[in-house]
Design a protein around this nucleic acid. Structure first.
Lengths: 113, 113
DNA sequence: ATTCTATATAACCTTTCAGTTATAGAATGA
DNA sequence: TCATTCTATAACTGAAAGGTTATATAGAAT
């Protein structure tokens, strides 16, 4: 996967509320598929599909415990999107500061031009 | 829109390489629709649709300059997703540190158990 | 061996998405 | 007014997303 494809996969994975809820659940530690499916009004295969999307994005990984395939959160993918977002945040915060300075300037000189 | 719906909209908007490229272009300042469309092998209506998705997510806003509708980046939406991501990063970095400590501990006591 | 549990896969359906072309509308300029 | 430029909308298409049920597979337990 190219970096762009990785961002596609990660943002796509995060764009669904069920998948974000799954990640929230996994913050408490490893959870099996059945346990993950339980709180949702959704079939087990649906959850398995969501897990596949999350795994493809590198947001989770799976282990093996007898028949169970416990899921755990994987942070690298989040680090990548966070890095991407930081670029934009820098620019925006930069603009914000420039705007701030402009407004302060206007206020300081009000009526004088 | 609920907070969850806002996250849906923002992550969905960021999940497309064309839209990310548009945002990258907008980092240099305001750009009109035609100017935005130019580098892409894509029709103008396609770009207008992408802009609508970005606008709906609050990632850009539009102005008015004669017939032109210049786009500019809007940072609030990014701030929201960044905040969301930070929660997960905290947990992951926490796990990472715990794992680190565990490994250090194992190494310090190697062969002694 | 058989059966039970946990998970994955297949086949299908419906809705959404990303693109197209053609056209409409809004502001400018001759 | 009429033509030109910039942008938006409508109607369509093909592909992908998100769900379903039914079934297959892997491992455990009886």
């Amino acid at each position: 996967m190219t970096p762009s494809e990785r961002l596609d996969a990660t943002f796509t994975a995060l764009a669904d509320p069920t998948r974000r809820a799954i990640l929230a659940r996994l913050m408490t530690g490893e959870v099996s598929v059945m346990e993950l499916a339980e709180p949702f009004a959704m079939s087990q295969p649906a959850i398995s599909k969501h897990l596949k999307v999350l795994e493809r994005a590198g947001l989770i990984s799976r282990g093996r415990d007898a028949q169970r395939r416990p899921c755990r959160i994987e942070g690298e993918a989040l680090a990548e999107v966070t890095g991407w977002l930081d670029e934009y945040r820098k620019v925006w915060e930069g603009n914000y500061k420039r705007l701030d300075a402009l407004l302060a300037d206007l206020q300081a000189n009000q009526g004088k031009a």
